Computed example of a mutant assay.
Amino acid sequence: MNSWDSYLAYQAVVRAFVDGDPLDQAGGPLDVRAVVAGIRADAKDGFLLEEVPWERFPDGLSVREVMERLRSGDAPAVRGALDSLIGLCANDMRAAVAPTVPFLIRIGADPEAGHRAGALTVTAEVARFRHQGVCTRADMLRFRGDDEWFFEVTGYLQNWSVQAARDAIAVDTDLLLPLLDDPDPAVRIATAYALAAASARAQDILSAFRACLPACSPSMTQPYVRDWYWLSLSWPGRTRIRRRWCGCGPVGPTPHGSPRYG
């Protein structure tokens, strides 16, 4: 049944975004930005997955099943669920994953939950564009402008999927900021990576990064502190960080590699 429903969703996306004008869908049922913004706070906190219209997006019902496994308490099932979500991002199918962001943030913020860093890493990955081939950390943190459209393999407008995730992170910034002081360094790294994608709350996030980073130097020895440093400077607000906080000149190429997974 999920396969057939996903096919219908795919056909709807093709008609709307490939055969039609994507802008005609703005604010409508196929606008994932509106879908994510419309999830009630109580539904997010209560993990009420049934309130999200997953079926509107290709593979959406499969994503809902994945989210159910995240609540199973079974470590291998949770790890497999997170891998599935990361896989959809890697396969350039973010529209179905974007509605998971508010729920993943709450998993990451729950000190009793397992795989918190993994949930936060998925959160951050949904909020970034897919990059072809091997990429550096600078590539992974790059944001594209709104003047150019990019489409997912299903035909969905990727700009909207990424924006939905970035907006969801901004809405829940207050849940994420305390995690920059989490005892688990993997959670701290994943949180910084997620916050660097937020579409708003720039000053609050900049202030939090400032409090976390003891120095502005690429020679810092602790790996997780060094990751915070690069993440912060690679954020869309990096110019302000350099001028107001660091007092340092232009920064050279970022090191290769990707953020750590939980």
Rank of each mutant, 00 (worst) to 15 (best):
C216P: 00
I241M: 08
A95C: 06
G60T: 04
L23N: 08
V18F: 14
S232H: 13
L206G: 10
R64F: 11
F103K: 00
A77D: 06
P76K: 14
L180A: 02
R260G: 09
D19C: 11
G87K: 08
D147K: 01
A95P: 01
F17P: 01
N2Q: 14
W230E: 00
L213H: 04
D5A: 14
V187D: 00
A168L: 13
W4E: 10
L233T: 04
D204C: 03
D167H: 10
V251D: 02
W54Y: 05
P255L: 07
G108S: 08
R166P: 00
C135V: 13
E68N: 04
G108Y: 04
F129R: 10
V187L: 00
A211Y: 03
D42E: 15
V134Y: 15
L8Q: 13
L23I: 06
M220R: 11
V162Y: 02
Q222I: 15
F150M: 11
S6M: 12
P259H: 04
Q222K: 12
V153T: 14
A168Y: 05
D182L: 00
A164Q: 04
S6C: 02
A43E: 10
V35P: 01
M140H: 09
V122D: 00
I107A: 03
W4L: 11
V36L: 03
R56F: 02
S234H: 12
A168Q: 03
W149G: 10
R244M: 14
R71N: 05
R166I: 02
V32F: 05
S258M: 10
E112P: 04
G118L: 03
R210I: 02
I241G: 00
